[in-house]
């Protein structure tokens, strides 16, 4: 750029970083994890696109459609369980602000239990479908339905393992830079899964029920 004129006087310029500063570990970690969550969001976006393409009448190939088996109130119970789990996690993080270890662990435990409730309801639902003879192999539309919902459930499953690991780490290590960073990234993960569930609930369950 021809207009880029030198503005710094080389005789007075500061050449070396004299004030020794350390970079913020927690913010670097949370940024990286946020970037990962973007890619996780893209993953779900692609799955939703596939579901969109495979949710026409002909995608079900004359077999069962979601309208025949979706129970909106049952799935609403799952929604409430997951949202309460996020809320409990939020209370736990509030306790973290006050350096209240037992408050945090109680919040995390509540989040864990509610997450398990969500997952148990999901597994029960899948078993119900299976007993009706509805599987991945029923039709393209059912493949999309089951894979989208179960990829979300898999995320919840790994999130639950992570919650247990974090409870153990907070109990053994307390609030260190590492554990606090991980609590924050886990919180982002847990919130994102709840947000994605909103889309699953609306576009897969509710839409499937009315169509």
């Amino acid at each position: 750029m021809s207009s880029h004129a030198s503005t710094v006087d080389p005789k007075k310029a500061e050449l070396w970083d004299t004030h020794h500063h350390t970079h913020d570990v927690i913010s670097t970690r949370t940024l990286g994890y946020f970037l990962y969550l973007l890619s996780d969001g893209m993953l779900f976006a692609t799955l939703f696109a596939a579901y969109g393409v495979l949710s026409y009448q002909h995608s079900y190939f004359g077999g069962p459609t979601p309208a025949e088996f979706v129970k909106p109130w049952y799935t609403f119970a799952q929604t409430i369980a997951l949202f309460l789990s996020v809320l409990a996690y939020g209370f736990g993080m509030n306790a973290l602000k006050h350096k209240n270890k037992s408050g945090l662990i109680n919040g995390m435990l509540a989040a864990f239990v509610l997450g398990v409730v969500f997952l148990v309801l999901d597994i029960h639902d899948m078993n119900h479908l299976y007993s009706m003879g509805i599987t991945l192999a029923s039709s393209g539309g059912m493949s999309a339905f089951i894979v989208l919902t179960q990829v979300h459930a898999t995320h919840i499953f790994f999130g639950l393992i992570w919650i247990l690991v974090m409870i153990a780490q907070v109990m053994t290590k307390g609030f260190t830079e590492e554990t606090v960073g991980r609590l924050l990234t886990l919180r982002m993960f847990w919130h994102l899964q709840a947000v994605i569930w909103v889309f699953v609930y609306i576009f897969v369950y509710l839409w499937g029920y009315i169509s």
């Binding site: 495979l54 991945l136 029923s138």
Partner: peptide, 14 residues
Amino acid sequence: YLGAHFFTAGMGGN
């Protein structure tokens, strides 16, 4: 692996 029908020629795949 699981016998799904995302991309099959029949059974509602695309």
